[in-house]
Design a protein around this nucleic acid. Structure first.
Lengths: 206, 206, 206, 206
DNA sequence: AATGAATGAGTATTCATTCAT
DNA sequence: GATGAATGAATACTCATTCAT
């Protein structure tokens, strides 16, 4: 009665396959980084190699799609927090979510850190993210607690840095990033700080 | 025919080969990361591929040797700074040197971040580094400016994090890490900071 | 639900599809040779891949159908010239048309030259062509100008040879085949020629 | 005593492998054209796939090497015939040798006919061939029997054309090309011929 | 009858590692 | 010891063909 007649048949299978593929690829990339082979992803998804390439014309396209998906998740989070009551808490919450995503995904960091892996789509998503985070950052700065000389892009970049700091501990202490996030937030909120010795990053990193 | 008796020269050759190999591998790994092929390293060193494998039984062994060498360079730097007049300045100097090394070396970060690439030797060197930096850190804490709840291991881990933060900017702004190092130092030196919400890292990360 | 009775239209659609398919395939094979993919042909025809396979059970069947079509075009040309006033001019005109067709069609030559690509249908069409050209040739021989020891099959084979001769020049000089056609006609019309050292080809080459 | 001490050991095996590889590749390309896979060539040569790529960095390089080898064989033949007593007989002998080579080699024709398959090396060899054949052709023209308006490049191109003419007969009548070579030579030697309607080919076909 | 998603064998190429010389 | 040739498993990607809808 729900969609008895609207189920487009083959389309349904395809959507299921695509879902499985994205899930498998997301998982595989997260666990083992960009080096997982397309063959393994296909196997994990329970579909044939050719089917993977039917959905995404190349490994980089697949990687880009997944990365964009992750980044856009963060954009949505940032947007949601835009109207929070406490701007500094909102920023903290966003950064927590951001590092959490990174901590769960090896490929993400590799893509973020290696320009050669970045499609235009990814760059676009990252730019969207920086802009969304800029809003959060400006609010937090206006409140006075967050130092004046940091930008949304700084915050986005810091996510990767905080994750990286805790990465060697990840296996034995999966929550270690919380320590370094707190440390970074303290740096971000120290109003008496010396002015930063280097200009803020350009809007388009890569 | 003539150098039957001169074979002691063989030892000298071997030492020279090893030196060239290490130099070439260091350079190659620094420039292009762990993905450089053994073939290219051999070529850069001007020796045969087989000779590379005589000196190091696998690519990972070679990578480990070079990583240890780099880490030990930092250990030496930390040791040298142990007696500096201004402990906080010494810590800052050490961290500057550390991030600078990372920024110039792609493979280093990849090894640090990937447990599967780490030999026991590397872990040992990192432990030595953490201990040496502990000394610096304790001194800086005693001076009162550096917050009490950070350890040498934290500092060592931060090096990677600071570098990672600036990594996406590396191509267009090679000195961007200075910005994030300053930010981290501000976090480290904010005395009114909230206590860190997560315990310090265990001595042997991996 | 409505067009239960209108299904005769299905037949019309199928015929239209077949026409589009043949046109697209002819064009595609002509331009890029036998290596064009079935996918591209389907796309050019504006129909689905599955439909292509409904009309032709394999790529080779499609290729054969198109080749037969081309060959039969030449058969028709030969038949038309059967009653021309000047038999030698007629033969020259036929050969001109034949080489022109080849020069415009990459796949054609590839099929002609590769027995493995030839279906019985193709062989049949070629035989029909040889017979039709035999008529032209006999008339030209009777007139006395064309040498006595060549057959229609020889003429047909020469079309491919003349085209091949000019093929390396095709990109820079698309009309170069005219030079070699003239040369061949001179050979065909040299009455004092030595008798050919090899017997004429059997009627069914492949 | 011959090269007891100079045999460089591994070098001997390598040379044997290379010989086997070239033989296998020559044979495979000759039999089945450029489409044979590197895997099959390796198998035929009795060596591993990787070894094929050690000797030739890509399939095209291998193809080029073999093609150059074949063309240079013809250059040598042309050079040898430069001083023959009867220039026309010399030209006939050269063309016989040339078509014979083509008749035995499928890939050769494909490479000759497809610019995209041609390395600079191949083009160089073909140019050398055209020049060498020019010498033969000029001599034959001076003798008066061969028509004045053909060039060495024409002759080289004709080799492919004559072969192509006989190609459909190859399986059942491997010597059929002799018939068409004779026909072409008659065209070449008809002094009363009409002037060719198209200018001679430029020196560098592709 | 048409669709187009899925399949899976096949391709060229790379590279760490082994081993005969 | 040094050499560099040989190995072969692995990778991304293509394409004719099949088949569920």
């Amino acid at each position: 009665m729900t969609d008895r007649a609207t189920t487009p048949g083959a389309r349904a299978d395809m959507i299921r396959n695509r879902r499985q593929l994205l899930a498998a690829a997301t998982e595989a990339f997260a666990e083992r980084g960009v080096e997982v082979s397309m063959g393994e992803i296909a196997q994990r998804a329970g579909i044939a190699k050719g089917t993977v390439f039917r959905h995404f014309p190349s490994k980089n396209h697949l990687l880009a799609a997944i990365t964009v998906q992750l980044v856009d998740g963060l954009v949505a989070a940032a947007d949601r927090l835009r109207t929070a009551d406490d701007p500094v808490a909102a920023l903290r919450e966003f950064m927590t979510a951001g590092v959490e995503v990174l901590a769960a995904d090896r490929a993400f960091c590799e893509v973020i850190g290696r320009p050669s892996l970045q499609h235009a789509e990814v760059r676009g998503a990252i730019n969207r993210l920086c802009e969304a985070v800029d809003v959060l950052t400006e609010r937090a700065k206006k409140q006075g607690t967050v130092r004046d000389d940091v930008t949304g892009t700084d915050i986005v970049l810091l996510l990767g840095g905080i994750h990286q700091t805790a990465l060697p501990l990840l296996a034995h202490d999966p929550q270690a990033w919380r320590r370094y996030l707190a440390l970074a937030l303290d740096g971000l909120c120290s109003p008496a700080a010396t002015p930063l010795p280097h200009p803020p990053p350009a809007p388009l990193p890569e």
